[in-house]
């Protein structure tokens, strides 16, 4: 379970996925063009160079960051809620963040406030979920049900916003963005994702060993000298920050945050000090590959959210059955 040799492969996965993304598309690129562009050497047609460096590279990096954030946040949420069946979407965080971002779009608010709105409403959603779950005893199932409830509530609000939105420009923008897409990702967006979320990802990476203690019973965590409430709040803040940024950039992308941590645990074991970085790296690789598929499978783009659903549901079923076959419980 603790093969050290796995780490180079885990690092290589997203790097290779991003690299491969540069070649593939409506205008296939050769090795020479890609490498020369990356090294800022001459001899590459300006259009090819612009396509590689100005379009494909930022998009692939954006996909890697969004995937890494969603998976990292998913692993952290699963840990602190002691529930291998949750991610930001099931907890309602994604719907809350999406509502916040859509509200900001509707009101025509500048970009940094879009993310702020997404963050604020994502936090509100997770707060409501925890509140409802506490009220009903807080088992694995209750948490999922309250997540679904709160998520539905925000989805309903989102419907209201769509109804109110101008059907000519704002509505298509909201709808397209909600389905999940990285097609508009340029360097400014990559920079934004990177800067905003280094804090969130950094916090999760720094706290990663403590997540083990938080994944125990609350009283045990306190008995081990952890200020559990405070630490859990920090983890929720960091995770929600990551999800809000991912949602504002790429819409509602499900499953990555739920499945990647399971795959990571299968490779590196359950210790969160390995699960968090492994999830981030694998999520980055997965979403880059999926985004590559979304823009190259068909002549027009397949929405990313659609694709993650098609891949994610069978993958989840597989994990679920394996979990049950090994005698895992859900209470």
């Amino acid at each position: 379970m603790k093969r050290r040799g796995i780490w180079p492969a885990l690092v290589l996965f997203p790097v290779a996925a991003v690299f491969v993304s540069l070649f593939i598309g409506r205008y296939p690129m050769g090795l020479g063009e890609v490498v020369r562009s990356l090294l800022f050497l001459g001899g590459v047609p300006p259009t090819s160079r612009a396509l590689i460096l100005g379009v494909r590279l930022p998009r692939a990096l954006g996909a890697a960051l969004v995937g890494g954030y969603l998976a990292g946040a998913g692993a952290a949420f699963q840990g602190i809620f002691r529930n291998p069946l949750v991610d930001s979407r099931i907890l309602g965080v994604s719907a809350g963040a999406a509502f916040g971002a859509a509200l900001a779009l509707l009101l025509g608010i500048p970009w940094y406030l879009v993310e702020g709105f997404a963050f604020a409403f994502g936090l509100l959603a997770v707060f409501l979920v925890v509140l409802v779950a506490r009220r009903f005893g807080g088992s694995v199932l209750v948490l999922i049900i309250s997540g679904i409830l709160v998520g539905s509530l925000f989805s309903a609000f989102l419907g209201l916003i769509k109804y109110l939105a101008d059907p000519l420009d704002v509505l298509p923008a909201i709808t397209y963005w909600l389905l999940g897409s990285l097609s508009g990702t340029r360097w400014d967006a990559v920079g934004k994702l990177f800067v905003v979320c280094v804090m969130g990802a950094g916090a999760l990476l720094l706290l990663r060993w403590r997540l083990n203690v938080l994944s125990l019973d609350e009283r045990e965590a306190v008995a081990l000298g952890v200020n559990a409430t405070r630490l859990r709040t920090w983890v929720i803040l960091a995770g929600t920050l990551l999800v809000a940024a991912a949602v504002s950039q790429a819409g509602m992308i499900g499953w990555i945050g739920l499945i990647t941590p399971h795959a990571a645990r299968a490779l590196v074991g359950p210790d969160h000090s390995r699960v968090i970085p492994a999830s981030m790296l694998m999520g980055a690789g997965f979403l880059t590959v999926l985004d590559l598929l979304s823009r190259s499978l068909m002549a027009s783009e397949v929405p990313l959210g659609v694709l993650t659903g098609i891949v994610g549901v069978p993958a989840f079923l597989f994990l679920f059955m394996r979990h049950l076959a090994r005698g895992g419980g859900w209470r």
């Binding site: 379970m1 840990g79 002691r82 529930n83 291998p84 083990n212 994944s215 125990l216 019973d217 009283r219 045990e220 008995a223 645990r265 074991g269 359950p270 210790d271 419980g329």
Partner: peptide
């Protein structure tokens, strides 16, 4: 504490 089963299969 009395025995409990953590969700994750720590060593």
């Amino acid at each position: 504490p009395q025995v409990h089963r953590p969700v994750f299969g720590y060593s």
